[in-house]
Design a protein around this nucleic acid. Structure first.
Length: 279
DNA sequence: GCCCAGGTATAAA
DNA sequence: TTTATACATGGG
């Protein structure tokens, strides 16, 4: 295994914040010391171990995989420091929020994987989502050294709800199959979503049985890197109203997705501020 | 045991 | 058109 070392990073890259914030569900921290942490995960059919030291990242992979897969996956061409500064200037609360997760990046994940992952996420919690996806990969992904790839959309399209019973996804199983079939049968055009604007993507994705506004929005942000997208769940709305009363998420414009990540992380760190008495 | 989870489809107001 | 409820399952 080759090693790509010496990627200099600024404060805008933190593995914990990026890989454990609910945008991706297949990464785990396998080692942690005072000086560094190592994370392992599988994406685009490849297993990666990645190590973060004080000011340096180490990718345990070939030079080619680094250049063709992981450089894009971690969005390394983009200067998050600059975007964070832009957002921080917009308001005091947002400036405060950016401090709590300055190292968050928006990953460029596979669109089908993001769509399926956020279908699994509905009315669910992160530990269980991870478990379902792990069993899903073991059941019908391809075995590779160290694990299983995310199941191919063509494979899932041929499966039935009964086939998926072992992953214990509950009522979500039918949605996964509906999504896979819609894609394979070209009822939903992923390439067109990639090329056209976010409004088309919202309309197109919500043709799928089981895809509502929230799953569509998360898929557009994490699977298509439409950075003007924003998550819409109840918690997020509560946080928005608390920090920015009367302000619409769209007003963050192009960086809305990143702003939402900061705000969401902030609201998690200050859960007590966002609890509302039952009415 | 009990509550509820980064929702959505469907039924009932 | 807006507001409830069921849904499958298990983490905490």
């Amino acid at each position: 295994m080759m090693t790509k070392t010496g990627i200099q990073i600024n404060k805008c890259f933190d593995l914990e914040q990026t890989l454990n914030c609910g945008q991706s569900f297949r990464w785990k921290e396998i080692e942690k010391t005072e000086e560094y942490s190592i994370w392992e995960g599988i994406a685009f059919g490849r297993l990666l171990q990645i190590r973060q030291d004080e000011d340096e990242l180490t990718f345990f992979c070939s030079q080619q995989d680094y250049e063709t897969v992981w450089y894009d996956y971690f969005d390394l061409a983009v200067n998050y420091e600059e975007m964070r500064e832009t957002l921080a200037k917009q308001s005091e609360p947002l400036k405060e929020a950016t401090k709590f997760a300055p190292g968050i990046r928006i990953l460029r994940q596979d669109a089908w994987e993001a769509l399926a992952s956020f279908l699994f996420s509905q009315n669910n919690n992160i530990p269980r989502i991870k478990g379902i996806i792990e069993r899903f990969a073991e059941l019908c992904g391809e075995p590779i050294d160290g694990g299983f790839t995310f199941p191919a959309v063509e494979t899932v399209a041929k499966m039935t709800v009964k086939d998926l019973e072992p992953i214990r996804a509950g009522f979500r199983a039918k949605y996964i199959i509906a999504a896979a079939r819609a894609i394979v049968e070209s009822k939903v055009d992923l390439q067109a979503i990639r090329e056209k604007d976010i409004h088309f993507g919202r309309y197109e994705l919500q043709k799928i049985h089981g895809v509502g506004p929230k799953v569509a929005e998360c898929t557009l942000l994490y699977g298509f890197h439409k950075t003007e997208a924003f998550p819409l769940d109840v918690w997020m709305k509560r946080a928005m109203n608390k920090l920015f009363p009367g302000k619409s998420p769209e007003e963050f414009g192009k960086h809305a997705g990143l702003a939402q990540q900061y705000i969401f992380h902030y609201s998690r760190m200050h859960a007590e501020l966002f609890q509302t008495p039952d009415t």
